[in-house]
């Protein structure tokens, strides 16, 4: 539809090829870890974006699904199942939880939805910390055979699938219905779009992908406290990434994740975690003055391109 579409497809193909070939052309583990993190954050941020950006529902309990996916995957995998099966279990558990938690919480309006989901995630975090207080570490046999490359490819897969999901939302019937619900629920109902069903569908997709990402994190990380995967940072980091990159856009989460990881790495040696300050200030700038984020800023450089539909209108009048 857009004039630049062939160029865009070419870019996507090159990017995908680069991501797939990276472990082949380099054995640099630091670089690979870095790319892994970018992909993991892309997948997690995109999963938040499916509901928060495309659906307009600000979910502050995303960590609950990341955590559930991580926990279930870890348990099934360490229990001896193949990792792919464990990931499927984790994804399934998070999706099911998404439906169970989404159905009542989507009845809440606006800020109550945001606060309610945050409360649910906190309940899960505290309870997990109480029930499973001990650190989860890989047994020696797994540690000996630990390799980054398969983890990396799972992250490539996750980022690709979730981004594909976002792309599908921009052109499928379901995605267009969801956009209508985001823009005006009453008017959407009046043309035959079942608002609740669409929001719940997006919630399930979003939490399922968050769970898959959590599962990959659990496969990647050597040792962590079970409560850690439910920490609010797994909600707030993707939220910041999505807004920095461009909320409600297909490529925003990727742009945001690259920026996020680069800045974090660049400033990680400084005292007092100044990257938090950078993200906080930029987040404010985006929310107040540039609701399109990085993606729109890049697009503005390319004249004639149409602005993407993003969530709500800029707050400033």
């Amino acid at each position: 539809m857009r004039g630049a579409a062939p160029l865009g497809s070419l870019g996507v193909a090159c990017g995908a090829a680069a991501a797939v070939l990276l472990p082949v052309v380099t054995a640099n583990q630091a670089l690979l870890s870095w790319a892994f993190l970018v992909l993991l954050y892309t997948a997690l941020a995109q999963s938040w974006n499916l509901l928060g950006g495309f659906g307009g529902q600000v979910n502050l309990g995303h960590a609950a699904f990341f955590g559930l996916g991580a926990l279930v995957t870890r348990m099934v995998w360490l229990g001896g199942a193949p990792v792919v099966l464990a990931l499927a279990a984790g994804t399934g558990a998070a999706t099911a939880a998404g439906v169970l938690i989404g159905a009542p919480s989507l009845r809440l309006r606006g800020p109550y939805f945001a606060i309610g989901t945050l409360a649910i995630a906190e309940i899960l975090r505290i309870t997990t910390g109480n029930v499973l207080p001990d650190v989860s570490s890989l047994p020696a046999r797994d540690l000996a055979g630990y390799a980054l490359t398969p983890r990396y490819y799972l992250a490539v897969f996750a980022a690709a699938v979730v981004t594909g999901g976002a792309w599908w939302l921009t052109r499928s019937r379901f995605g267009r219905g969801l956009a209508a619900v985001r823009e005006d629920e009453t008017a959407a109902e009046a043309i035959g779009v079942g608002a609740f069903r669409h929001k719940l569908g997006a919630f399930a997709l979003s939490s399922g992908f968050a769970g898959m990402t959590g599962g990959i994190f659990a496969y990647y990380h050597v040792s962590f406290y079970p409560a850690f995967v439910f920490s609010p940072v797994w909600t707030f980091d993707p939220l910041v990434i999505v807004y920095l990159g461009g909320v409600g856009t297909v490529w925003g989460p990727l742009a945001g994740a690259v920026f996020f990881v680069v800045v974090q790495e660049a400033l990680s040696l400084q005292v007092g975690e100044p990257h938090l300050l950078v993200f906080g200030l930029l987040f404010l700038v985006v929310v107040i003055a540039a609701p399109g984020g990085l993606v729109e800023a890049l697009r503005a450089v390319r004249p004639g391109a149409r602005a993407p539909a993003h969530m709500g209108s800029p707050p400033a009048a």
């Binding site: 267009r176 219905g177 823009e183 005006d184 009453t186 779009v193 539909a309």
Partner: peptide
């Protein structure tokens, strides 16, 4: 609607398109 309700962030075409896909 008495007080017009369009989908403000969607283009005119997208407004109508989504109704074609449902309805």
């Amino acid at each position: 609607f008495q007080l017009v309700r369009v989908f403000p962030g969607l283009t005119a075409l997208e407004n109508v398109l989504v109704a074609c896909l449902y309805g």
